[in-house]
């Protein structure tokens, strides 16, 4: 079975749930799916579908780069760490010094995107710096 067939339910689901700029490409036996999900819930749903088709993501035949399009500068986002505080760093990288912390469940303001992984944010307390985007979710 080809990769396009194997992951067809995923692509169909992405189309049906309003994923923008959807791109599906196959190269060297890996399928690359890129797109922008309208919300974090849609992204999670797609990952659940991926997990169903390929349990524990073992086959190494898909790279699914789905970002959430509601992460835009100026938006308010909640800190969604499991329990701990979120490190605010001087630059985009865990090798950068920590300049502050945002509490679990705190609401912060997105200032600008550094890359898909790092956002410059500002807390209501005035701390500004880079945090790992995965721990932010726009409400």
């Amino acid at each position: 079975m080809g990769l396009q067939d194997k992951y067809k339910p995923l692509v169909d689901s992405a189309n049906a749930s309003g994923v923008k700029n959807l791109q599906v490409r196959e190269q060297d036996n890996v399928l690359y799916i890129d797109g922008e999900a309208p919300s974090g819930a849609v992204k999670d749903q797609l990952w659940a579908t991926y997990d169903q088709i390929d349990p524990d993501y073992r086959s190494a035949d898909l790279v699914m780069n789905i970002n959430v399009s509601n992460m835009v500068a100026g938006a308010k986002a909640k800190v969604t760490t499991q329990t701990s505080n979120l490190n605010i760093r001087k630059g985009p990288g865990t090798d950068q010094p920590i300049v502050g912390k945002a509490a679990h469940n705190e609401i912060v303001t997105l200032v600008s995107k550094s890359n898909d992984q790092w956002w410059l944010i500002r807390t209501d307390g005035g701390a500004e710096g880079y945090v790992y985007a995965q721990y932010l979710s726009v409400q």
Binding site: V30, Y57, A60, V63, M64, N65, I66, N67, D116, Q117
Partner: peptide, 9 residues
């Protein structure tokens, strides 16, 4: 998966 890897084993 957002880091643009070739694939993930």
């Amino acid at each position: 998966h957002t880091l643009k890897p070739k694939k993930i084993e």
